[in-house]
Design a protein around this nucleic acid. Structure first.
Lengths: 206, 206
DNA sequence: CCCCATTTTGACCAAATGGTCAGGATCAGG
DNA sequence: CCTGATCCTGACCATTTGGTCAAAATGGGG
């Protein structure tokens, strides 16, 4: 009890290796989806043997579940920050910018999520029908309030949110396609940000 | 030579069964991705035994390849129809409407494509870097021409095309999420069409 | 209804996959 | 530097998977 089981219930090695494994698993799962990925692949990517990996996680499923559960929360953060008290147009534009930043900085997470949804969300449907749904309801109401007050142009708040998601996540999820079409363009994201700023500015102007 | 090998080089049964198989494979591949799908799954969905399926197609890969190659072409059709001679705003809006219709009528095809791209487009990268890239270049030039003529508001033509793709395909690829958030809403697509019409109208107005 | 081409099947195979286990290597506190 | 806990490995196992094959069933033109 003295040497092991520190405050976290884990040793230093456990913390390090678990992080390594999750990092590798993110690489693999985000590219091949759950069923298309193998424990061996993940183990190799993490620099471990398969039995060694299974010493840290009980199963393939457990790794995937841990990744997803950690993801959902941070994924919703940019939307949570949407503040009813702020300036409507600026609030929405900030949300778009934050979301685009996440596509740029965490494309693997975006693809992991996309894979899960496309395949019918077998593992996170509850979270979508719960947390996400509630959050959407809350923020839709705020946006509707802005519209009713004549502070932004009228539109469907829920579809506005869908538009924000699809426009921003596209750059991460379909990165290969984007790059194939603008190969020389190093600065995809700055241009994308400009474009989306233009788009939403025009769209929201009364 | 008399009884078999009609004009198509295939018998009636071959034509029927191959169609059945492709139909079933579309169901399965679009949901689980290539690596996540099994021949047995497809065979069962098509009402055949595995060896019987393999009598009609030489391998799992061949089925997938045939689906994808057939897809690429029809996928680009709506963009091909974009006509430099037409009214700019109406041309773009028609393109959006056609693309949204495809999401509504062929969601499995959309997801098959999305799966392929997310996973790095291992099988259709050439087509993307070829046909698609050329078509984008061509249509971007047309749009740029409209902008230069002051007929639509200025914006980045390539990113405009990305926006059209992402906004419309989202309703097919993330259908589960959309439905989870608007479960009561039977009329997702009519509303989506209205929303996108509003969005692009505002965006393109000088 | 005969006969050959076409279609279908069950049995089979090698490789891959998720997971287990006993024992050996290593680490760190005393 | 000893000792028990932690960490790691090779060997192993059952199941799944992509694919083959010989032989049986079926079909349809003559």
């Amino acid at each position: 009890m003295t040497k092991s089981a520190d405050k976290n219930g884990k040793t230093r090695i456990q913390r390090e290796k678990r992080k390594q494994i999750l990092e590798a698993a993110l690489d693999v799962f985000s590219q091949f989806g759950y069923r298309g990925s193998t424990i061996d692949q993940i183990a190799k990517a993490a620099g471990l043997s398969k039995p060694n990996l299974l010493y840290y996680f009980p199963s393939k499923d457990a790794i995937h579940a841990e990744l997803l559960s950690g993801l959902m929360d941070s994924w919703l953060d940019p939307m949570r920050a949407l503040n009813a008290e702020g300036d409507p147009k600026e609030e929405i534009l900030s949300y778009v910018r934050r979301k685009l930043q996440m596509s740029r900085d965490f494309p693997r997470e975006s693809r992991l999520f996309a894979n899960e949804i496309i395949q019918g969300a077998p593992r996170i449907l509850p979270a979508i029908e719960g947390e996400l749904r509630d959050l959407v309801a809350e923020k839709s109401a705020i946006i509707q309030g802005w519209i009713d007050a004549g502070r932004i142009a009228p539109l469907d708040p829920q579809h506005l949110l869908f538009s924000i998601w699809s426009l921003t996540q596209h750059y991460a999820d379909f990165e290969v396609q984007v790059r194939a079409i603008m190969p020389s363009e190093e600065r995809v994201y700055p241009r994308a940000e400009e474009h989306l700023e233009t788009l939403f500015t025009r769209m929201l102007s009364v």
